[in-house]
């Protein structure tokens, strides 16, 4: 079972990234839940979502201690870092986060998500690039199901599907 918290600011595709991961895992026959933070938030405000991917029943959709934490900006690091389970994995978007994780009991993966996604075609896909890294390092979802998730997540913008698959694959290869 994976308990994943993805956090950043509005407009980074935080919620979409969580939805794509949940959808992808569902197509593998897994039980999934996706829970957004919802509030009086807007573009530029904070955004986070909790995704659970499990072989069996998902009990609480509320995550107390994530085993995977994805940090897309500075404030999110401070907000969530203490909650990660010992031995968990923290993904840090080092393009935007300028501090290092001090905890020694978690694995930390630094991902130049914005820069690398930009070089691959569009900085807007930093979330999908990050998803590639998470999928590879933690074995959360396979590339095949991630492609299905991307097709579903971008079904209203089909022009973006090819590029996002390419960016996912590039990250999946690199990590």
């Amino acid at each position: 079972m994976h308990k994943i918290i993805i956090a950043g600011f509005g407009g980074q595709g935080i919620l979409l990234m969580g939805q794509i991961m949940a959808y992808s895992a569902m197509t593998e026959g897994k039980e999934v839940s996706w829970m957004p933070s919802y509030g009086p938030e807007m573009r530029g405000g904070t955004a986070n979502c909790a995704v659970i991917i499990s072989e069996g029943m998902v009990a609480s959709p509320v995550i107390s201690r994530p085993d995977v934490l994805v940090i897309m900006n500075n404030p999110s690091l401070y907000k969530f870092i203490d909650r990660v389970e010992e031995g968990g994995t923290v993904f840090v978007n080092s393009s935007l986060v300028d501090v290092k994780v001090e905890r020694k009991d978690v694995k930390v993966v630094y991902v130049r998500a914005n820069e690398d996604a930009h070089e691959l075609g569009t900085e807007k896909a930093a979330n999908v690039y990050m998803m590639g890294a998470v999928s590879k390092v933690c074995g959360v979802i396979s590339p095949e199901s991630a492609h299905r998730g991307i097709e579903h997540g971008f079904s209203s913008k089909p022009k973006l599907i090819y590029l996002n698959k390419k960016i996912f694959d590039a990250a999946f290869e690199r990590f």
Binding site: M26, W34, M35, P36, Y38, P61, V62
Partner: peptide, 10 residues
């Protein structure tokens, strides 16, 4: 409640 209304599941 708002949580169930907003969350997604299969």
């Amino acid at each position: 409640d708002g949580l169930l209304g907003q969350m997604m599941e299969g």
